[in-house]
Write a protein that binds this DNA or RNA. Structure first.
Length: 468
RNA sequence: GGCGGGGUAGCCAAGUGGUAAGGCAGGGCUCUGCAAAAGCCUCAUUCGUCGGUUCGAUUCCGACCUCCGCCUCCA
């Protein structure tokens, strides 16, 4: 069986069959950040999830074209620009830079395309014109342009592909107020928002007057520009299912008459310490907050990757602590394998563990099961290592397999820190003292090294220094 | 109120109509001058509660309790 994903469109797990029957290329669009603040750990779960999808597709031999938009114009941004007395580019630039830096810290592969909404106003306007020409959109008295769900449905299109909609039973949210303008129907949504005084300098001219794009239209315009009218995968957080993604489908299919996206994948939210993240609860963390607590991007990435992407995940500080220990377990094992395999030429990867790994991930990215298999593998290797029963060739094969596995996990390996020469000398002095049975002195040196941040590891092959 | 997803050990988390992966923490052991580090072993007669179907249910069905998400610019 091949790769299967849970597709929100069908609400079921489906075999992944790329649109392009000939080529290996897969188009993948992931809703990126709105750059008005630092991204928080919940946002990062989604981006790490998208990174996992991409890396796994690449392991499977697909050539992925990965697009992630940068939303750099939107209500909140405009408000903050006004409040901070900065320009739009200045304001969004700093958060975009921070975002890309954080993405690296988490060892996410950089998307091939990172289109900004403000740089695609032309494409957005053309798309809106297409919808107007088809009679699916209308211009309101205030100069805004709206998408008409009724007209769209009248064309035989389906609104509500990603979820069951029941407009009669819907409770209008509070946010409707701020977005009312002059719509024909409450369900309609803005494609183009007419300029209002609060927008300040943030506006573009259009055939309908000055204004700015609505929220959903940028994703339709940019994804179709780069990936074509129909593409394979579209990812995002589960909260985007409605209205964002539903509206993207409507705009895109309304304009092209073609199916927009074949597979929609949505990542679940996370809780922090068992509760929904909120600033008032004190459990709201940006990546930077966690780094400041002494955790590494690697540990955070690992923890975010321990649970299945469609399950709510409880992110905890205990979990982060545990991530550190779990990673050390893998590192130790790999370190021993490297020692054993040192100098051996490239080996063929151990197929058995690769099989375990891909069988788990093929099943809608069941990464928890994949980790289970990996830790079983580590234990078995440790057993054999401890019994001196592991041939060097087997160690080399295991390492070759790990290299491929880690091309997906992105956990990497921490190079063993080399102690400076003077500490190495201290270690030797201690060893001499031990041999002379001067344990007092030996222990004093041990304490000294510990104070300097190095732990002595007395192995059967002699003492080693390890960074605390 | 409508729609959707959950509740599995102290914590995190897979999974299955046939008797519960894995990680962390805990306990034991090996190694050691003692430690530490590391490794190995161990750790749920039970899967929110109550009923039902079944030879058999944690898994299917129903009710209830409870948590989370969406219901118009929130990953």
């Amino acid at each position: 069986m091949g790769l299967r994903f849970f597709n929100t469109l069908s609400r079921s797990v489906q075999e992944f069959v790329q649109l392009d029957p000939a080529g290996k290329e897969v188009g993948m669009y992931c809703c990126g950040p709105t750059v008005y603040d630092f991204a928080h750990i919940g946002n990062w779960r989604t981006f790490v999830f998208a990174d996992l999808v991409r890396r796994y597709l690449e392991l499977k031999g697909y050539q992925v074209r990965h697009v992630m938009n940068i939303t750099d114009v939107e209500d909140k941004i405009i408000r903050r620009v006004r409040e901070t007395n900065s320009t739009l580019a200045e304001f969004t630039g700093q958060y975009e830079a921070a975002f890309l830096e954080d993405l690296k810290t988490l060892n996410c592969l950089e998307p091939h395309h990172k289109p900004r909404a403000t740089e695609h106003i032309g494409e957005i306007i053309s798309l809106i014109e297409k919808l107007l020409a088809r009679g699916i959109a209308y211009k309101a008295a205030d100069g805004s342009v709206y998408f008409s769900i009724e007209k769209y449905r009248g064309c035989g299109c389906t609104y509500g592909q990603l979820l069951k909609l029941n407009f009669e039973e819907m409770r209008p949210g509070e946010r409707v107020k701020s977005d009312e303008y002059a719509k024909e129907s409450v369900a309609d949504f803005a494609l183009w928002k007419a300029r209002v005084p609060e927008d300040g300098d943030v506006f573009w001219s259009s055939p309908w007057g000055e204004g700015r794009p609505g929220w959903h239209i940028e994703c339709s315009a940019m994804s179709m520009k780069i990936l074509g009218e129909s593409f394979d995968l579209h990812l995002g957080g589960e909260d985007l299912i409605f209205p964002h993604h539903e509206d993207e489908i409507a705009q895109s299919e309304g304009a092209t008459g073609q199916p927009f996206v074949k597979y929609w994948l949505h990542g679940a939210f996370l809780l922090v310490e068992g509760r929904k993240m909120s600033k008032s609860l004190g459990n709201y963390f940006t990546l930077r907050d966690l780094l400041a607590k002494g955790f590494t991007g690697r540990e955070i990435r690992y923890l975010l990757l321990t649970a299945h992407y469609r399950e709510t995940f409880n992110f905890t500080m205990d979990g982060l602590q545990g991530a550190r220990t779990a990673l050390a377990r893998i590192d130790e094992c790999l370190g021993k394998l490297r020692e054993l395999a040192a100098g051996r030429p490239e080996a063929a990867a151990d197929e058995a563990i690769l099989q375990v790994f891909t069988t788990a991930l093929d099943d809608d990215l069941n990464i928890a099961a994949a980790w289970g298999g990996l830790f079983d593998w580590v234990r078995e290797l440790n057993r054999r290592l401890a019994g001196n029963a592991l041939p060097a060739a087997t160690a080399a094969a295991a390492l070759a397999a790990w290299e491929r596995i880690d091309s997906v996990l992105g956990i990497g390996t921490v190079a063993e820190a080399k102690a400076p020469a003077e500490l190495q000398a201290l270690l030797e002095a201690r060893q001499a003292a031990r041999q002379a049975k001067d344990f007092k002195r030996a222990d004093a040196i041990r304490d000294e090294l510990k104070a300097k941040g190095w732990i002595i590891e007395d192995t059967p092959k002699g003492p080693k220094l390890k960074k605390a």
